[in-house]
């Protein structure tokens, strides 16, 4: 009995150590980045890194003074919100249709598109958008980012639709609902938490995706993440400003990721069926 209790205590300690180690490995770069953004520029690249310093906002001031940071942020917001909305607009009915018909190949196709390297699409898109004069437009960026958001919406929502008892939809059919009305009045309220999670995930992935924006945007439509890439200059990188930019870029996804947790548990379908 004592041995068993001892073993359990040791396993618990080991688990804690593992979690702490994993936490440090994951969080260290982020903490370093955030701390560096508040350091005077000469301390950012100091070696060994300084842990005690006088915090300053000079990097943030430098960032806004030397770059159109707010314009880039607005571009990111337009592209991300647009592509997320597009993903939801087509992804919700698509996921419902896949769940309803049990025809899964369209969903697998979108997943394959998401898993394929972005460069696969980039060249044909570049040629296509250039031909129709859309390079540098928000539309081109939003459409290209829909490749990121659409599969996320479909695959996050599919299990949410799947767990709703089919008889609930059939009852709605018998009550007089069309397919669209079933989706809107019956299914949507039941998968609301799934929609929120998929919207947030789509937003985060689209916000963080830089490859398409790097090639398909221009000076007026460049997104934050693509612009940040340009901060790394040859021999004249402003590391302090770069850290400040990286911190600001990471902020919206981090806040949204924290919000996701609140939506993950939903008991809406409880009571729909027996028991």
């Amino acid at each position: 009995m004592n041995d068993a209790a001892n073993t359990e205590r040791w396993i618990h300690r080991l688990n804690t150590v593992q979690l702490v180690l994993a936490g440090i490995i994951i969080m260290a770069p982020t903490v370093w980045m955030v701390l560096s953004s508040f350091k005077p520029s000469f301390e950012v690249t100091a070696y060994p890194p300084t842990l005690v310093f006088t915090p300053t906002l000079e990097n943030y001031a430098e960032l806004t003074r030397t770059t159109p940071f707010l314009s880039y942020a607005l571009n990111s917001l337009i592209v991300t919100v647009g592509s997320t909305a597009l993903g939801l607009l087509f992804g919700i009915p698509a996921a419902f249709a896949v769940s309803w018909t049990r025809i899964t190949w369209p969903a697998i196709l979108t997943l394959a598109a998401r898993m394929a390297p972005g460069t696969l699409f980039l060249l044909p898109w570049y040629v296509m958008f250039r031909q129709i004069g859309m390079i540098g437009s928000y539309t081109a960026l939003i459409l290209s980012h829909a490749v990121i958001t659409l599969p996320i919406v479909i695959w996050v929502l599919l299990p949410s639709f799947d767990v709703i008892p089919r008889s609930v939809f059939e009852a709605a059919q018998v009550d007089g609902c069309s397919f669209t009305r079933i989706l809107w009045r019956i299914a949507m309220p039941l998968v609301a938490s799934g929609v929120a999670v998929s919207a947030i995930l789509a937003f985060v992935f689209s916000w963080n995706y830089f490859l398409f924006a790097l090639v398909l945007s221009n000076g007026d439509t460049k997104t934050l993440i693509a612009a940040a890439f340009n901060f790394i200059g040859e021999g004249s990188t402003q590391w302090g400003a770069l850290m400040a930019a990286a911190t600001l870029i990471a902020l919206p996804p981090l806040v949204l990721a924290a919000l996701v947790q609140r939506w993950l548990v939903s008991g809406l379908t409880l009571g729909a069926v027996k028991g």
Binding site: P165, S167, V168, E170, A171, A172, V174, I186, L190, L268, T269, L270, G271, A272, V273, K274
Partner: peptide, 10 residues
């Protein structure tokens, strides 16, 4: 129609 699992709108 009345369903086996009632199929009420939750």
């Amino acid at each position: 129609m009345v369903f086996q699992d009632y199929a009420l709108y939750p």
